[in-house]
Nucleic acid binder design. Sequence first.
DNA 1: GCCCAATTTCTACATAACGTAGAATACTTC
DNA 2: GAAGTATTCTACGTTATGTAGAAATTGGGC
Lengths: 124, 124
Amino acid sequence: MATLGDLERSVMDLLWDSAVAQTANDLRDKLAQVTGSDGKELAVTTVLTVLARLEKKQLVTRARDTRPHRYLAVTSREEHTVELMNEAMGNVMDREAVLARFIGGISPEELASLRRILDDGASA
Amino acid sequence: MATLGDLERSVMDLLWDSAVAQTANDLRDKLAQVTGSDGKELAVTTVLTVLARLEKKQLVTRARDTRPHRYLAVTSREEHTVELMNEAMGNVMDREAVLARFIGGISPEELASLRRILDDGASA
DNA sequence: GCCCAATTTCTACATAACGTAGAATACTTC
DNA sequence: GAAGTATTCTACGTTATGTAGAAATTGGGC
């Protein structure tokens, strides 16, 4: 998967934060608010271009049957994050070492929740 | 941190795989072997350019006191991977959810080692 | 001390990704 | 079918990366 640019990231954040599908205009308006306080409105075509690119990257789908197409994220932010993490691990052979270091760096709270997760899903 | 390009990645892999510092020529030779069987030798300047960029990205340091400068990776591959993983998690608020999903996707063996790691370092 | 050969730095160009948006085309609705 | 709205095409500037020649630097040998 490709890394997201700033605008792409902002759009994905908006999509991830809303349960319902958004139109390009919705997103442009929200971007104006979120993106700093500059209030600088982007052209809708800009948003549409980015959405098309995100669609090509399979991060976004759109409902083409409604007229203002409605866009929504394909995966959750968490799912996407996990994919990035796995991608990062992909090249490494010593996955255990990575896990060890990773765990060594997380907060006690997260460590606790990690234990909990492991204990709960006590599968094979 | 920036994502590495293909050549940058190859160079880092070579540096990560060798304990001793390498010269640009060393790396060029090894790249010719590693990079497919095309045996196509890159120009040394190409390797040097990439090394300079990796240095700027603080992934590589070089000994400037020896004449053919000798380059070596600043961090281990594992360390770097962990950084990427943390960077991926950086934006997310629900880190627990990410952890849960991440764990849900790893192999039983890794799960086992994960438990082991957690049990060993039973710190606060 | 000077020159050569090896090495490094500068400069440069091609390609691709991304931000950005106008021009052109396609729907909808009246 | 005219008008407005929405989408697609096309395009340009910027930055990252792969690639390497030209120019400068430096360590040795004579």
